[in-house]
Design a protein around this nucleic acid. Structure first.
Lengths: 193, 193, 193, 193
DNA sequence: TATGAATGAGAATTCATTCAT
DNA sequence: GATGAATGAATTCTCATTCAT
């Protein structure tokens, strides 16, 4: 297959992702039909099925892409700074994620509470940087007796908790807005570490 | 309106709840049609719309009912015991919820990650016992300087975290099965308190 | 039957007429359900069927009532004035109708092009004043050789034409607005007479 | 798009028009379901919505087509003859329309009183022959001082009046059958001209 | 590869009508 | 007489999927 065809395929796929993302976030998943997606993507209906199995296939892959993107950005930024304590490093990392979603409410709504370390591990083949998150944690716990497993579980728990609180506070405004929840969330994470 | 008519209406509504719950948990929400629900409930199709706006209206109310039920049971059981420390009381409360959902995977799947203190507060008018949960926390923090708000946020955070971890571990088996996650979850909650 | 019951029935019937008229004119006939009407009328659903056969039964009777009302008002007003020529009298009569519907666009929309002498004749038992219209014409043609039948046909034709032009110009704004159509309509009626 | 596909689309659209026309005229519009139309047209239900928005969309377009057709036939026939006077020409034109609808009662019932010059003007892009009607009138009034606008209004008025009288006399038999109304209608039109 | 017209099963929803109270 | 809960047939409309071009 020629490179041109290859890149053309990539363009088509991207246009489906973009169109679907915009429709899912604005109209909701249940109210978005495949015909809406292809219309918005400017492709034929049949073409959709050459790239995706169905609507939920696109959705799953979008969530994976988007949440990976956020975490990768967060880890990259965190790595570029230096911190006195591991705790500060983790809080910076979490803060980045929080600030990101404060700007991207629609994306958060789509990801719902699926921002999870577990989801990302599956995608780790595509997004190598995801591993970096784990490495950060491993270094942080280097001098402790915690097992690899326990470290990973702690990481999982922190990300899950963050995702859950983000959704509640930013989307549902429960129990309070995100800026009011931040101190208690940070406090909790500090305690966990 | 006569009491007979009133009670008849209640029976109809209940039969819809039951039928919908069974279908949602076994076939999934997207695969359950309203015609399935009414067939299973043994009522006419139009009757459904007398009580609910649509499928998602039933779903929302079911989640509310079911999660309230679980938390109410948990608090009732907890209140019936005596504990040396507040921490033990909270862990018993949480443990009850965990054990409950270990048996009720389908319900957990339906509630997804919507087990939340915030969702329940809205229903508190219907389920007075929900208030008891808050009272338990208030007594536990009686001698501290924590404000009402902070207590409630902590409660919120613990329930949200529990719900999130429950779903991940029991439904997705990520990052590990629930019994392996329990110690770290309990440890975390202890630290939070 | 006691008078009180009688008047109560009349009130119910009137409330149905009013509710239906308002809904028909604002939402359209096809978009108005009987349940809308009874809700708006503040009566029970079953009650509707004690007074009317169905939606179109109400509609027919409303059109009859309303168009009779307009024509009766017009003839009454015309009779209260004196005119030099029969022609002036007829034009005044028609002008009254035109001015009336300029203010009552919604009613005109409902009556559509059913403003007709034929429709009214059927209702003449209920609205004696309708006969007055014919009498006016009969006097106007007193000294001519026109037969009763021809007079009635002319009357019919003038009212039909007026109704048709009113609807076109006021509702559809075709071929021009009503004030631009008036001169040519008056001119035509003068010629007819 | 290939010509074959294009022509196939045209066939589909035509089959919907035909099926809908037959059902509307025989069963009535309110008693005709879209499922009836597609069954009769021999197409899939979804196909209907590819071509029309809903039942009333078909109806509107049918009225336009059919009334255009009649007027076009009338003008064509009129043009093929020669007349001494403009008046005779117009009366021949109107007579053709009358005789047409005497044979086609069902179509008249469908068109109701919507036979109107205004309706046709909108469709004039599709049916160029409609312009011919106006031209006939323009020539007829060539030597008078009437403005373009006044000519068009007169034309409008005559067609509207004819349509209205046709419906009343043929469908409602009010105030008399069409053959009895013809003389007075012709007389009126002569006066108008 | 890409298309998009066609499909028809099936989903949601409405609503006139009944009838027990 | 009056009511309004219940009905379920009827209707509208959607939409994933196919397949000839």
């Amino acid at each position: 297959m020629s490179t041109k065809v290859e890149s053309n395929k990539r363009i088509k796929e991207e246009s489906i992702y973009d169109a679907a993302y915009n429709l899912f976030t604005t109209k909701g998943i249940n109210n978005t039909a495949i015909s809406d997606i292809v219309k918005s993507a400017g492709i034929g209906k049949g073409t959709f099925y050459l790239y995706f199995k169905n609507k939920y296939d696109v959705l799953d892959r979008i969530i994976l892409r988007k949440s990976s993107e956020v975490l990768c950005q967060a880890i990259e930024k965190t790595k570029s700074k230096s911190f006195d304590k591991f705790e500060d490093q983790v809080l910076y990392f979490i803060d980045y994620i929080i600030e990101y979603f404060k700007e991207e409410r629609l994306m958060l709504k789509l990801i719902h509470k699926n921002l999870s370390w577990g989801v990302l591990k599956k995608a780790s083949s595509d997004y190598d940087e995801v591993h970096e998150i784990y490495k950060m944690f491993e270094s942080g716990y280097a001098n402790t007796s915690l097992s690899r497993d326990d470290i990973e579980k702690t990481l999982f728990l922190i990300i899950d908790l963050t995702g859950s609180i983000l959704y509640s506070s930013i989307i549902l405004r429960e129990p309070d807005e995100i800026d009011k929840m931040k101190p208690i969330l940070f406090d909790t994470i500090s305690k966990i570490i």
